[in-house]
Design a protein around this nucleic acid. Structure first.
Lengths: 209, 209
DNA sequence: GGCGCAATCTTCACGTTGTAAAGATAAGCA
DNA sequence: TGCTTATCTTTACAACGTGAAGATTGCGCC
């Protein structure tokens, strides 16, 4: 059986990407790959993502990402970690601005949770694709735990009731975000945001104080 | 560039699958493929699924599924449709058995929703992987709408409040199921079921009547 | 300034996947 | 019995992730 050299001209067929004469060292490949990946996922969804396409958009060879992320799971884990960090910031900000009674803080955080998911669907999806990321990654876990901490702090209740309240609030907003993103509240473009505008406040109101 | 014949002996290398002398016509390929697919997804997750592996387990060639499902999306859509039908049955059963006051019916349906997700994680995941199925498929939509109808009927409220109540209940149980399945309530094996036992009733209780 | 090491990126290769196209087989009906 | 048509196989191809080995360059040290 004769071997054939792998598709030589197909790996970088598009005019885009780094022109052949570009610098050998990219300089900021890590960030460029993350940006490209988020764009691809925003366009095609997590399932449509490919590492080769990200490399193509960053203007490097298909194996270039290896040095920075190991494998595709490493790249997606980095995106998820940054996502949880940003989500945590959003929750903290919502917690701080406004009246400081617990129910109001929880409502604002819930709203912020859903808004984050709708504003950054690509990142949010990656954060919850546990078979495509490394769920045991230390930085990822820390960022996720931190974000959950803000919800928990605003959930109220005594020591043994606090967890139930926090999980209930988390479930409510997480479920709403997922339903909206997955088209269950309307599949036309923009339906998710419209559903949130029309329903989210009322939905949060269904939770006991 | 010389061509090479595709890997001839690799396509069915394992001892498993249909022995070469088996019947040319499978007889029940459609069902066999669906069963194989659900098994694979239960083992490896939706992202680990491959059509070729399903064909291998059913003992047929890689292109055999084409005639029954068109492409991989067709197979997964069939699984999702059956999943929504089963979910609908589970909600209907929970609705029927027990006291018929609205809050009790809604609580039982919520519990049934989560239990279904934990009992059939593979099917449940496929049902919500909208980029891997055809979300416009008529049968799929009908089965999903039917299932939602049971929740809606038990949500109560007047005409304009009913939707908010139904979406809130759906969000709560859907979110809880997703968090549990995605390891957010504990990632050790069996943690999802344990979290449901410990928290679900209390979580449902956080919803206003 | 020049040298060498280590970081970074490329090339090449391989096995895997989904699926189009065309051919083989057999089931069912005239 | 013979024909039609549903079902399955064979063959092929482009795309993917990634291991291995080599090329290139930035940077610290003399």
């Amino acid at each position: 059986m004769t071997r054939h050299p792998d598709t030589v001209k197909i790996d970088n067929p598009d005019g885009a990407g780094r022109d052949k004469g570009g610098p050998y060292h990219h300089g900021a490949l890590r960030e460029a790959l993350i940006d490209a990946a988020v764009s691809i996922i925003a366009e095609r969804g997590v399932d449509g993502f490919s590492l080769r396409e990200a490399a193509r958009r960053a203007g490097v060879s298909p194996a270039a990402p290896q040095h920075h992320f190991g494998d595709v799971r490493g790249l997606l884990t980095a995106i998820a970690t940054a996502g949880f960090a940003e989500l945590g910031d959003a929750l903290a900000a919502a917690d701080a601005q406004g009246p400081q009674d617990l129910p109001a803080r929880l409502r604002r955080q819930g709203e912020a949770y859903v808004r984050f998911a709708l504003r950054q669907p690509a990142r949010f999806d990656v954060m919850w694709r546990k078979t495509r990321i490394d769920p045991d990654d230390a930085a990822l876990r820390q960022a996720a735990t931190r974000a959950y901490g803000f919800l928990k702090a605003a959930a109220g209740g005594d020591a043994q009731d606090n967890e139930v309240r926090a999980v209930a609030a988390w479930s409510l907003v997480h479920g709403f975000a997922r339903l909206a993103l997955d088209g269950a509240l309307g599949s036309e473009p923009g339906a998710a945001a419209r559903a949130a505008d029309a329903l989210l406040a009322g939905v949060m109101e269904r939770l006991k104080d």
